[in-house]
Amino acid sequence: MNLEPVGRGGLSGGAAGARTITISSAEFLIASNFNVNGSGAGQADILIAADAQASLPALIEEVSRLLTDDRRRFVEDRGTQIASAHAERRRQAIATARYGWDARPVSMARVAAELWPLIKDEDWSFSSPQGFIGGWPGRLWDMKKSYHAIGSQGGGGIGYSLPASVGAALANKQHGRITVNINGDGDLNYAPGALWTAVHHQIPLLTVVHNNRAYHQELMYLQQQGAARNRGAERAPIGTTITDPNIDYATMARAYGMFAEGPIENPGDLGPALRRSVERIKSGEPALIDVVSQPR
């Protein structure tokens, strides 16, 4: 048996000849207007529509009961190897995170590194995608629980992070858990009304705005395409940058009644501002910090 998550990229394969069973709540979205299973639809031998978090403990217990001593040693050895590889990758990430530590705009590695000591002893959840922020939370933080990395948007669009994070934080609230969202600035502008929802319902969500003042994915893509097609790259910023005027996200959040600080441009101001905002969310209210940041 090969137990695999199903995502937009489909199944990742597994041992040759293995039968595949999936357990996922994504199957409940089968009637939605996007293909939640991507290219992997129908590849599993059995697709079980269920809550994986609720289902897995019983499954793990049953599998453990059936393990022979040899297989148990094999699983333990593999766990040791994975833990070692993870520690090594974390060490490598730390060695990279130091670059541009004092740079202005603030590096995204520093944002993640400064956040970690403030949340690591709490029951915490990270709610937003990591692809546009250099993957730094996953690289630097010790993510052990399913809700430590909730995931990404199903459709690849923008405007996901804030409303998804408000929803995640609402679900986390009943467990006394705080939620952190590192939100792209372009993304934040699509549904800022969710800020009001967070305030209205007093949802403990910290939103750190990754304010690179651009739809940066598009900016890089247009530059690459302009050069590749001999059109020059000078016009890539047209329609992809969010400047003139710069948006003041802290003022925007305050307009919705939320505690907010920023724009933070001095990396030395980042840690204290994050500390104050984490104290706010620990007291049960949402907060937003606007950080003028490096592109990635």
């Binding site: 490096q294 592109p295 990635r296």
Partner: peptide
């Protein structure tokens, strides 16, 4: 800046993807 080199390499050439 104009050619958005910073996009992939960071404003100080130290960060980015």
């Amino acid at each position: 800046t104009d050619y958005t080199c910073f996009g992939c390499h960071g404003y100080t050439g130290e960060t980015g993807r």
